[in-house]
Amino acid sequence: MTATPTTPILRLSGIDKSFGAVQVLHDVSFDVRPGEVTALVGDNGAGKSTLVKCIGGIHPMDGGEYWFEGAQVQVHSPREAAALGVEIVYQDLALCDNLDIVQNMFLGREKRRGLVLDDTTMEEMATQTLEGLSVRTVKSIRQQVSSLSGGQRQTVAIAKAVLWNSKVVVLDEPTAALGVAQTAQVLELVRRLADNGLAVVLISHNMNDVFAVSDRIAALYLGRMAAQVSTSDVTHSQVVELITSGRSGDLGLARSNGVTA
């Protein structure tokens, strides 16, 4: 779906965010489209995590607009973001080691039948979600999370995010701590999410991962959106230049003599 101009499901425009005197995001615009993987890249401190936390409703934005499915919305908490269908998988995954896969996937949002937990429904939903993602690496959904490998944990965390009919899934460095084989599994899963119609945002430092699965690349540079381009239009070195200097040829921020107003 790279070049077919689908309308963004999530659109941020003119986002400003400061922590005290420190401005972290400046006039950032960001579009996320269904059926696509949008890679969000940038150096440490470029503002990726802050932007994601604004999307997820953890940080209030100082200024700017948050549009979802064509309507302007206000997102003040993670719960409101989740209600829209925006789920974020953070790097630490936030899984509980002493609980099993099903318990983790429904943690805090358990299905009940009367006063007791509805284990059958939860197991069914978990199984269906994992099957829908063609996850074959997990032996039993009643396995404790502590017994899972890094790749499997990431898979569970991602499945947990898509369980709720979410429309936008943001993945913060999902392959950072994984070996080659497990990275391949997770990347395949990321691609499948988008091919199933979800809008996926992938934060990654690994250019091979970015070029392997993304349809679009958004590069942040010192709190500004340097460029948001189609992955079929740029080269590796252009993306590296966007990350390290905010511009590459005609792409990127206008020259500002180093002054970030």
């Binding site: 250019m207 091979n208 970015v210 070029f211 392997a212 079929s232 740029v234 590796h236 070195s237």
Partner: peptide
């Protein structure tokens, strides 16, 4: 595996 390990070069060259 070769693709996943060199996607940046492959894609850049195609582009």
């Amino acid at each position: 595996e070769v693709f996943l390990g060199s996607a940046a070069q492959i894609r850049s060259r195609i582009n």
